[in-house]
Design a binder for these strands. Structure first.
Lengths: 208, 208
DNA sequence: AGGCTAGTGACAGTCACTGACAATTGACAA
DNA sequence: TTGTCAATTGTCAGTGACTGTCACTAGCCT
């Protein structure tokens, strides 16, 4: 059983996060000050920064929660799958179980809306991209492990992940720039992009 | 002939930029305040912000100067080249003529050292990555134009650029994390990575 | 019950950045 | 050359993210 103190902390953190996400999606990231959030939760601004390293961290918290799951999913993919297939399947799997991961904090709808906010807020997009670099490094390690190659000597794990990551970021961008902001549209677009890598890399497009 | 006023402005801007780059590479980005830079150039802090939208813009100015050249180079690549080849050749070409572009402001050495600073400074790396998104969008437009396809309907231009961009960012990262920080090492690594895309995407690595 | 300590609020300070206004200085015509 | 206009700059005040410090409160544990 958790102690009262721990439960209180948990509640404060969740209140801050929920309020922050609500305000970010409602009035935009830049137009929401940390003071606003703290005031709405009725804690001091200083307390906000005791729970989150910065405003960005709160904004990206939901996306962050899905990362651990993704890495796990890749690790658990059957060994016979080609690396790129394992990555694809793991991502799709992650989206299927999205709700289980974030439901304690926010509904899937908020997760998806935060993606729009991220893509349309330069400073948030920048932070998001920087984080994906770290995720890609972790993925490369997992792939190297899975395939039994030496990450220091063999560039293929990082290369595969770089290609995959580039395509996934394109997917995020086009999805959030499009009209259909459903999870299903995201899935469809991702699969279509991943299948399109081969054709796109072929010699010329004009000979159709 | 330029007017005196314009020459003065030019001189102020270059002094600010040169000083900023010098301080960034010498003592790090975070440890250099805008006040430091302004004081060193003997202008007010306000003036710094009249020449640069922010501290980041000064830090990324050199890298920015090479972008226009890169886009031009892609446009001028022979039409028979495959899209990915055109991108590769344009980048290599850009590095060959690097000095011509930036010599008015700083030597190539500073350009290369700023890359280390960017890669090792989270907030700068984030800004750099965000900018590459915009560059990729421009590249996709150029490719679509070159190949005569409709960017809105055909995902191949963006897909190609996404893959290319992912691999180039991997190149930057590994280069700056390595030992040899020469332009030649960067070239070699880029070529090796671009050639490795195919093999990395193959079914399995274990069958060698 | 009372000491210990984690968690918090209040306060002061730094740094990036912005708006407003006054002072300066180059440009240009009379 | 001189006076006017406009561009450039400095000063000042303010906002917002973030950090260090310190005293205080409240849960914890004996």
């Amino acid at each position: 059983m958790e102690t009262l103190r721990e439960r209180k902390k948990q509640r404060t953190r969740e209140a801050l996060l929920r309020t922050a996400l609500e305000m970010f999606t409602a009035q935009g990231y830049d137009d929401t000050t940390v003071d606003d959030i703290a005031r709405a939760v009725d804690v001091s601004q200083r307390t906000f920064f005791r729970y989150f390293a910065g405003k960005e961290e709160a904004a990206l918290a939901l996306q962050d929660m899905t990362v651990a799951r993704l890495l796990e999913a890749v690790r658990e993919r059957p060994a016979h799958e080609a690396p790129m297939d394992a990555l694809r399947q793991a991502v799709l799997e992650g989206w299927d179980t999205l709700n289980e991961v974030i439901e304690a904090v926010a509904p899937v709808e908020v997760f998806l809306r935060m993606y729009q906010v991220i893509e349309s807020t330069p400073v948030l997009l920048a932070a998001h991209l920087r984080r994906s670099v770290e995720i890609e490094e972790a993925l490369a390690r997992i792939l190297a492990d899975r395939e039994g190659v030496d990450l220091a000597a063999d560039p293929r794990p990082r290369l595969t992940v770089a290609v995959f990551g580039g395509v996934m970021r394109l997917t995020e961008r086009r999805w959030s720039g499009g009209r259909d902001h459903s999870l299903d549209a995201l899935r469809t677009l991702a699969v279509s992009h991943l299948e399109g890598i081969g054709p796109a890399l072929s010699e010329s497009w004009r000979t159709h």
